[in-house]
Amino acid sequence: MIEQRYAIGHADYANAGKVSSQIKSFLKQIGLDPTLLRRIAVACYEAEINMIIHSYGGEITLAMDENSLDLNFKDNGPGIPDVEKAMTPGWSTASEKAREFGFGAGMGLPNIKRMADTFEIQSTQSGTHVHIAFKVNE
């Protein structure tokens, strides 16, 4: 069982994507299938960017055994007022700053769901929790 934790800072645009890059490098080193690796990397990066753009910061955890890889993205709020709307392609509340960085098309959550084998999201004012999982051995 592998477990890793990464802190994500509030509006930390300077380091946006670093955690996903580290996770991708690590999973590449241990020889994960490249197609699966690409799906994990894209989903992880989208979720990391979401945390930076929308949240007060939080934590990404990775857990992996021989059957599955789980990624949890837990932030400290302010939460998503309408999760159903946030899952609609093209719907976005991203700031102008986020758009300057190339994000905020409203494609993040739908794309994360498309990449992952399992997708769950819960959100309250005290935080959003996105859990995604991938089958490792098929």
Binding site: A16, G17, T35, R38, R39, V42, Y45, E46, I49, R99, F101, G102, F103, G104, A105, G106, M107, G108, P110, N111, R114
Partner: peptide, 28 residues
């Protein structure tokens, strides 16, 4: 110029892809 679109739309089967963009920051 929108990386969200690249992440959502680039076909995973396309290994020989050029990314053309005017977004010259680290996120590209």
């Amino acid at each position: 110029d929108l990386m969200s679109d690249a992440l959502a739309m680039v076909n995973s089967d396309c290994k020989k892809t050029l990314l053309v963009t005017g977004l010259q920051n680290a996120q590209s």
